[in-house]
């Protein structure tokens, strides 16, 4: 019972969210570009989040074996939905006037995406990342069942041997972690939004 368990937990969260951004961002952009794949991508991401976490981890464990890799893959899949959905939403909600102006200035499709659409969509994408992160902090608790350790392990152990101190330590650390991330990332979000809405707001 120490700081290292908290760090272990945090490491899995950060790794999973990072992977999820790597996979989710391109999928979100694809959903925005191609109407046909949008339904499929969003449906699959929705299904992945619908599947009970422990069931998802159990299935992955069969292929990858017990351990942190299983947890990270599982949470990556689990976090896809908010990131993909918000990337798509953010891009499609960029002011059509701005998009048209960019096209009118002769920017290429890729240039427009990188320099106009993605920067403007970023606050909404960031919201998706925040939701994914806070969810992941809670879901990584299941890591304990598939041999991944983290704060879940100490809670399980606490319940099994009826040690309230361990349960409390695990729970409070988790709550603190979730709240700190939520507030910190929420603060960044507010600043991002203010930056883009300009002095009129």
């Amino acid at each position: 019972m120490s700081v290292s368990i908290i760090l272990e937990h945090l490491l899995m969260v950060v790794a999973a969210v990072f992977c999820s951004i790597l996979v989710g961002l391109p999928l979100g952009i694809a959903s925005y570009f191609f109407t046909r794949v949008r339904r499929i991508i969003l449906f699959v991401a929705d299904v992945l989040q619908t599947v009970p976490s422990l069931a998802l981890l159990g299935i992955i464990m069969i292929f990858v074996g017990a351990g942190k890799t299983t947890v990270i893959i599982g949470i990556t899949l689990y976090s896809l939905l908010p990131i993909v959905r918000n990337t798509y939403l953010g891009l499609s909600e960029v002011d059509p006037g701005v998009k048209e102006a960019a096209r009118g200035m002769g920017m290429s499709r890729f240039y427009r995406l990188m320099h106009v659409e993605l920067p403007l969509a970023f606050p909404i994408i960031f919201t998706g990342i925040r939701i994914a992160t806070v969810n992941a902090i809670g879901t990584v608790v299941f890591a304990a069942s598939v041999g991944g350790g983290g704060l879940g392990a100490i809670i399980y152990k606490g319940i099994r041997v009826m040690n309230m101190k361990w349960i409390a330590f695990g729970t409070l650390s988790l709550m603190a972690m979730a709240i700190v991330f939520d507030i910190a990332m929420g603060g960044i979000e507010t600043r991002l939004n203010r930056k883009f809405s300009g002095p009129s707001n």
Partner: peptide, 28 residues
Amino acid sequence: IYQGININRNDIILLGAIPAAVLAIALG
């Protein structure tokens, strides 16, 4: 799922995981 994990039997894990997944998706 728990039993499967404990006795290291993949088929038992799936016996719980797949119906649970289907149940969640169907209810959704």
